[in-house]
Design a protein around this nucleic acid. Structure first.
Lengths: 313, 313
DNA sequence: TTCCATTGTTTGAGAATATCAAATAATAGC
DNA sequence: GCTATTATTTGATATTCTCAAACAATGGAA
């Protein structure tokens, strides 16, 4: 198939619209000679002349009329396509698609959602709750929210929460039957409900703060879930002790279904990060969301943004 | 209004179609670096990135998808417009619009019309009989056929007939009543029907050949028409003597409505020329017509082509 | 794991193209 | 004929494009 270069069309269309080469040159912001030469080059390429020229005016030949009638709407459409794409970057309206875990929603997004939607009436959010780390690019998401320790590679990550309060918890019925641990090492003798990262396949480590020292403990896992919600559910049912974000079990604590324990030793979990591929850094809607969430994050101990490469931070 | 340059789109669309930059480069016949740089320039201009790149593949971002979906059909249309225009020059099919006088039709075109149409089944002719010299450009004609002495300026003119046989003529009834002139000077005592060029406004001069000398005579004009057909019609009705192309009155001579006179003194009229604006010299249909008619012109005493500038030749 | 084949990117040099200002040519209206 | 306006040519300059080669990165194979 023969390739047909289409450049030069803008000069042509402008001459038609303006009625003369000189005003076309002015409209295009170039000199008159440039227009003349470009038109000549176009005619040369097409092998046919497009205008009858006198020194006073230019007038379309039949070939010129054919080209104009067919090319003008096509060029208008093409220009519009560019414009639409260009505006995507600057537009403050549209739909942002996020992928986030239930915990990320509760801890990082839910508290600010109402304000964000109120502040940005043009932005719609499409939220996908998913424990697994999805491929932001391929699945058509603009960004994701995850804990800092499970970020994927080659993403720009922005911290949007302080470190997350955690809690050990169990059903009162379980504690009555097995006793309440008072020091972290007591956990080793208990039935524990634990959590496995669906993506990495790793069992989530339990960390405690004891005597100013952070230590990792590995209590027996009688039950393992790949979602925090499952862990909490099982704990409610009296299957054992769990460890997770305190915020996710707030309701159960209120109703008395669960009770916290070992509170002095509960170590903070890593903060949540909003992350997105570098290619999306100029999507204005996303910038608005990022800046909003970042500004809501009161504590700013950790660096605000970190480029994650290969290893998790 | 902001101008939005649309170049670079071909590179973008080719990458999408081919699935990688390297094969796009091959398809476009340029190096891989050229494609990479052009894409980057396009993204820079749009202010947004169009592809997720890995070293193994490229994949559209959302912005890229928006651009592709809107721009692909528009670009296809634009390419088609160029193609159609380009083919106009080379096409041997289409409609040629000619402007010619009735005399030009009879003397220059009619004798060859059947053969031309048979030889060029793809070419249609649209003929406009008009005694006046029309503006070929403005009226949308491709060419005109006129006598050499009334050609307009800035046209390419090609002689397509030998000099034209002329005849003095009158109705037999007129000759019976007023006598038949036997020498040119006798015309001065006759009632003559003469012809005025509608465009130039000049009375057509009568020329005769006498004793090897061409001389101009100016007989009394009792009736003046702006068309040769009118002159002949008036002569048929016995109003006087006319002078015109012999071919145009062939029918009337056959039926005896008219008779020729002063035959030894009848001087040839100038040949007919096909003329067209320089801009149309690459219209293939027109070239076919020109070459056909030129080749039919048996005698080639006069130069074949002459560029007419300002003054008539 | 290490290596390899493939692909995108960068780089600097060179080629091609675009643009400009000024000179030139041409024409419609006065 | 003169003038104002317009298209075109021209030669110099600036910009852009392109290439080849080196480089970087990645998915798959040994």
């Amino acid at each position: 198939m023969e390739r047909i270069p289409t450049h030069g069309i803008e000069v042509f269309l402008t001459i038609v619209r303006e009625g003369s080469m000189r005003s076309a040159a002015t409209a295009l912001g170039v000199g008159a000679s440039a227009v003349s030469l470009q038109l000549k080059a176009l005619e040369e390429r097409l092998g046919i002349e497009l205008f009858f020229r006198t020194t006073r005016s230019v007038e379309l030949t039949e070939a010129g009329r054919v080209l104009f009638e067919a090319a003008a709407p096509a060029h208008r459409d093409l220009t519009y396509a560019f414009k639409k794409t260009k505006e995507m970057a600057r537009s403050t309206t549209g739909t942002l698609r996020l992928s986030l875990s239930r915990g990320a929603y509760i801890a990082a997004l839910a508290p600010h959602l109402k304000d964000f939607l109120a502040d940005n009436p043009g932005i719609n959010l499409e939220l996908s709750w998913n424990e697994e780390l999805v491929d932001i690019n391929r699945q058509g998401f603009h960004c994701g929210i995850r804990m800092g320790d499970v970020l994927s590679q080659d993403m720009i990550a922005v911290r949007i929460t302080p470190p997350i309060k955690s809690a050990f918890f169990a059903a009162p019925s379980y504690l009555r039957a097995h006793g309440t641990p008072v020091r972290p090492r007591d956990l080793l003798g208990h039935q524990c409900v634990r959590h496995r990262h669906p993506t990495s396949g790793m069992l989530r480590e339990w960390w405690v703060s004891e005597d100013g020292q952070d230590t990792c403990i590995d209590p027996p896992a009688r039950l393992i879930f790949d979602s925090a919600a499952g862990v909490i559910q099982a704990a409610c049912e009296g299957h054992g002790i769990g460890w997770s974000m305190k915020a996710t079990m707030q309701e159960h604590l209120k109703t008395g279904e669960l009770a916290t324990l070992l509170e002095p030793f509960a170590k903070d979990l890593p903060p949540f990060y909003l992350y997105f591929p570098e290619q999306n850094k100029r999507v204005e809607c996303l910038r608005l969301l990022v800046n909003f969430l970042k500004s809501q994050s009161k504590s700013s101990v950790a660096p605000d943004a970190v480029a994650v490469t290969n290893s998790c931070s």
